[in-house]
């Protein structure tokens, strides 16, 4: 058999081994064209395109998650540990950071990114010669996201910085959903808030690596039952580390600073 090249080029036809019939292989269509063709073939009797269903797994916070991973890599590369501090407004995040910068920040270089809806009051309160601070005003957004943190960090001189504190917007709900690229999430609960906050706002407490029970110096005056609060924290976040402290009296502050030292930032 001497097939002529123009009718049976090997790359165009296949010869069936038994019947000897020649067949052309189907051409591969580009994905959009294939979709169009299958939609046309599947079109309903009225000529309208048939409804197709696709199963997906598209994460809704994909953009934030990618940026958070980028932040995490950046922090790791610089050998610094980032902590994301979240709590209700007024639970003592800024006061704790002031004291931390004054005591711990003199030996270990720290930096702060602080978010609020408006004003740079916290940024001004935290300003120290030995610790760079960036204030982010979210303009109404109820949480910090990874891109805001990236921009805040960009404006800081991180030379020699070992610990980065990210003071989130005061809010016990929304910050739970947004990974900022931190290594440690710290959730604060103050004695002025009520012992059952962890039960009322469980997602954020569940996401905590460390829970700080703050303002314990005034717990008795408030009739705040510390043991009940501790029990509630334990039930929601059984594996989180728990420290009870008062930034004003100093109770428990040493334990918090020991915790920071234990994070052992490299480099």
């Amino acid at each position: 058999m001497n097939p002529t090249p123009e009718i049976t080029p090997a790359d165009e036809c296949q010869i069936h081994p038994l019947s000897g019939a020649a067949a052309r292989p189907g051409r591969l269509l580009s994905a959009p064209l294939a979709a169009e063709v299958s939609a046309t073939l599947a079109a309903g009797p009225d000529g309208g395109a048939a409804v197709r269903a696709v199963d997906l797994r598209v994460p809704l916070l994909e953009k934030n998650d990618i940026l958070a991973e980028r932040n995490r890599g950046y922090f790791l590369g610089r050998g610094l540990v980032a902590l994301n501090l979240v709590s209700s407004p007024g639970s003592g995040k800024t006061t704790l950071l002031e004291r931390t910068l004054d005591e711990f920040g003199r030996q270990t270089k720290c930096a702060v990114v602080v978010g609020d809806l408006e004003t740079d009051n916290d940024g001004l309160r935290l300003r120290r010669a030995h610790a760079p601070v960036a204030q982010i005003t979210t303009g109404g957004t109820c949480h910090l996201d990874a891109s805001m943190v990236a921009r805040g960090v960009e404006s800081l001189d991180l030379e020699g910085v070992k610990i980065l504190f990210i003071e989130n917007v005061g809010n016990l709900v929304c910050p739970a959903s947004f990974d900022l690229g931190e290594q440690v999430r710290v959730v604060l609960l103050s004695c002025t808030e009520g012992e059952d906050k962890p039960l009322k706002y469980p997602p954020i407490f569940k996401s905590a690596n460390l829970v700080l029970l703050t303002k314990v110096d005034i717990a008795d005056a408030l009739g705040f039952k510390r043991d009940v609060a501790v029990e509630n924290i334990r039930r929601i976040a059984p594996t989180a580390r728990l420290i009870q402290l008062s930034s004003r009296s100093g109770e428990g502050v040493a334990e918090w600073l020991d915790y920071l030292r234990s994070l052992n930032p490299q480099r």
Binding site: A39, G48, A49, A50, V51, R52, A53, V54, D55, L56, R57, V58, P59, L60, L61, S177
Partner: peptide, 9 residues
Amino acid sequence: MELSRLEMS
């Protein structure tokens, strides 16, 4: 938190 299914034409 994800988009898991889409029906379209």
